Amino acid sequence: MPSKPLSKPLAHLTSKYLQSASLQCGLPLTGSKPTLMSNLRAAAAAPTTLTPTSRILSIDLGLRNLAFALLTPTHTPKKQHNLTLRAWTRLDLLPPDLNKPTHDFSPPSIAHLAVSLLHTHLLPLSPTHILIERQRFRSGGAAPVLEWTLRVNALETALYAALATLRHLEVWEGRVVTGEEATRGKARATGSKAMKLAKIRLVEASLREGKAVGLGTDEVREAVRRFLAAGESRGRKKGGKKAEGEGVETVETDDGKKRDDLADCLCQGVAWLQWQRNLEDLKKKEPWILESAEEMLE
């Protein structure tokens, strides 16, 4: 990305440059040059400046498999990590109930579930930004809309409504960010399995190196240990062999079954944080991004 400020970018910037800048900031890559510039200006004007007290809660939404990661940015240059992982877990919002063979997915029930999730698990983490991955309307590109998809979409809507109410009542002053942009490029249809595996491998490598993400609590360190152990255990079982004297470690939870949800929420949070940093750098390098469309045409 060019570092020299441009006084009149409309005459000098190319679509390729604007697409590159958009990619670095997690924005759409399609559209005319004015559209790309408008997207960049709108993103720059949004109040997303990160501070040492920012707490980003990234959620991969689901009913059976909801995962979230709480991240805080690091602004001290001498720190080894750019961010710290403060919480990382997966929840089953529909625990088995022997007295109720079927679950109630009526609007009042979904509303209660959303409020309970916020009150019990999410708001106690004191997030300043909540990223909610936007849910699809169809599964695998199929024409029918699956009933389970509608249920998750209902939970998504209930969460937005509850958070909007809390903001209106000034009970919570944070910001909700739709994770549609934070999952840009996410594979669809036949490529989804490969993408899920790629994300898991990416998270595994990053956590093993211990450079990109700091581990802020004992609970997080245990969650990371189990995440990595589940991958090692599954790898040994799949290969059908194990090293001499090596036993297959028993994973205490079922994190190995849905590690893609844990990987998704962490990747979404890390990507969004990096995009905000790139946007801040862009505002410093390219002053035009803060100008109005009229000022740029002068």
Rank of each mutant, 00 (worst) to 15 (best):
M1T: 06
P2T: 00
K8T: 06
L10W: 12
A11H: 07
H12Q: 12
T14R: 15
Y17E: 14
L18F: 03
Q19P: 08
S20W: 10
S20G: 14
S22W: 12
Q24E: 05
L29N: 09
L29G: 12
G31D: 02
M37R: 11
S38T: 07
S38Q: 12
S38N: 05
N39A: 11
A42E: 14
A46T: 12
A46Y: 11
T49E: 07
L50N: 12
P52V: 00
P52Q: 03
I56D: 00
D60G: 06
G62F: 03
L63F: 03
F68W: 02
A69C: 01
A69S: 08
T74V: 12
T76C: 08
P77K: 04
K78S: 15
Q80C: 06
N82P: 06
N82W: 03
L83V: 10
L83F: 14
T84E: 02
T84R: 10
L85S: 00
L91I: 07
L93K: 02
T102K: 01
F105L: 05
S106Y: 05
P107E: 09
P107D: 10
S109R: 08
A111T: 15
A114M: 05
L118S: 14
L123V: 05
L123G: 03
L125A: 04
P127A: 06
T128Q: 12
H129P: 06
H129L: 11
H129Y: 09
E133L: 08
R134L: 12
Q135C: 10
R136G: 05
A142D: 15
A154V: 05
E156Q: 13
E156N: 10
T157D: 11
E170R: 15
V171M: 07
G174S: 07
G179N: 08
E181P: 03
R188C: 01
T190F: 07
G191D: 14
G191K: 13
M195G: 15
L197Y: 07
L202G: 00
L207D: 10
G210C: 04
G210N: 04
V213R: 07
V213T: 12
G214H: 13
L215M: 02
G216E: 00
T217L: 06
E219Y: 01
E219H: 07
R221W: 09
E222P: 03
A223D: 05
V224I: 08
L228V: 10
A229R: 13
G235D: 14
K237C: 08
E244T: 14
G247Q: 09
G247C: 04
T250H: 11
V251R: 06
D255F: 14
G256N: 08
K257F: 01
R259S: 15
D260C: 02
D260G: 01
L262F: 06
D264L: 04
D264T: 06
C267E: 00
Q268V: 11
Q268S: 03
Q268H: 02
G269A: 04
A271R: 15
Q276I: 02
Q276D: 00
N278E: 06
L279G: 14
E280P: 06
E280V: 11
E280D: 09
K284T: 09
K285P: 01
P287A: 03
P287S: 10
W288I: 01
S292K: 13
E294Y: 11
